[in-house]
């Protein structure tokens, strides 16, 4: 493969700080505008298609090294690309859709990881 000269990424701390401030301001503005917008109790509109939860354990749901996911963004420094396949529920207009996606196992989103952690803590 090609040898690439290592570049040093230097983030100007002042710029970074300014950017950070703008980001936080935008986040706050977003939260606050929503708070004002929605005075009444928000309604629940979480229609879930029946088939989503029926699919018990898909043998491929926990996917150690699936074919397309092995390419590691970090250039292979962390060799274990341990990913979990999840269903993503989305709406297109009024219709629900399910798509698949891979999420790193260590993501807090993944229930099994949490249990694993709990087990480790007990030791």
């Amino acid at each position: 493969s090609i040898q690439v000269r290592q570049k040093v990424v230097e983030v100007d701390p002042k710029e970074a700080e300014d950017f950070d401030r703008d980001l936080r301001a935008l986040m706050q503005e977003s939260v606050e505008s929503r708070r004002l917008e929605i005075r009444a109790r928000p309604t629940l509109n979480m229609m879930i298609p029946m088939n989503v939860f029926d699919g018990t354990k898909d043998p491929r749901a926990i996917d150690g090294e699936s074919s397309e996911e092995t390419v590691d963004e970090d250039g292979g420094t962390s060799a274990l690309s341990n990913k979990v396949r999840v269903k993503v529920l989305m709406k297109k207009g009024n219709k629900q859709q399910t798509k698949h996606m891979f999420i790193p196992r260590e993501s807090s989103l993944i229930q099994s990881t949490k249990q694993q952690e709990a087990a480790e803590l007990e030791e």
């Binding site: 935008l26 986040m27 977003s30 939260v31 929503r34 708070r35 929605i38 928000p42 309604t43 629940l44 509109n45 979480m46 989503v52 939860f53 699919g55 898909d58 749901a61 979990v84 396949r85 999840v86 269903k87 993503v88 529920l89 989305m90 709406k91 996606m101 999420i103 989103l109 993944i110 229930q111």
Partner: peptide, 27 residues
């Protein structure tokens, strides 16, 4: 749930027992 598209408010939650996730706004 509500169709809010502001990415600064969005995040994923997962089902308690299954490998299912959805995007949900925090406010």
């Amino acid at each position: 749930n509500c169709g809010c598209r502001n990415v600064f408010l969005l995040g994923f939650i997962s089902a308690k027992t299954e490998s299912v996730v959805v995007l949900l706004c925090r406010e």
